[in-house]
Design a binder for these strands. Structure first.
Length: 177
DNA sequence: TAAGTGATCTCT
DNA sequence: GAGATCACTTAA
């Protein structure tokens, strides 16, 4: 089995919740000046569709969120709270706004710390998810479905109880802070 | 618990 | 153009 082959663009062209769940256990890969770092993804969040009040796409496309309306398999990187870069990958078909936020890996917890550890900034925004971008994802060892938990997303209480309490956050058991 | 930090969005 | 907001972190 060839686990070194990067995930293809079609992988991300699936329902957002499916991608978010299946990314758990896969490997986030970063080429830093020729050195490849690989971190196992342990935590993701789904932002799904034009009606998701917690999503940046909730008010239609804007200069920032337009990439979410594009094809799947594209990085969406934006600055949060003026300090932290947050790393997302666009999912679902074109014109359907959705993305998966990569919140943490086995050695780094917290989306802001993750991008800091991997030297990710806004330059990655709109780049495809493949090795040419120096940032891509490879399949990991299979994870038993029972080891993946779902819970409410973080920091989105403003979206109202319906959307903020949906179990759109996926993580490995025992891998929460 | 609270403040830092700056792009983005919404309303004038 | 001005003000509010924000998918977070760190320092107390």
């Amino acid at each position: 089995m060839d686990t070194a082959r990067p995930l293809p663009q079609e992988f991300f062209n699936q329902p957002t919740l499916t991608v978010a769940r299946e990314l758990i256990g896969s490997r986030l890969c970063r080429n830093l000046d020729g050195t490849v770092l690989r971190y196992r993804i342990t935590e993701t969040e789904a932002y799904d569709g034009p009606d998701d009040c917690a999503s940046h796409a909730r008010s239609g496309p804007t200069p920032r969120s337009a990439v979410m309306f594009g094809p799947a398999g594209i990085w969406y990187v934006y600055l949060c709270y003026g300090i932290h870069w947050l790393l997302n990958v666009v999912t679902g078909p074109e014109s359907y706004p959705a993305a998966v936020l990569i919140r943490g890996t086995e050695s780094v917890s917290g989306p802001g710390r993750l991008t800091k550890a991997l030297a990710i900034n806004g330059n990655f925004n709109h780049l495809p998810v493949n090795p040419e971008s120096a940032l891509w994802i490879e399949p990991g060892e299979p994870v038993e479905p029972a080891r993946i938990s779902a819970s409410a997303r973080i920091g989105v209480a403003y979206a109202g109880p319906d959307w903020s309490q949906r179990p759109y956050r996926f993580h490995l058991n025992g891998n929460l802070p």
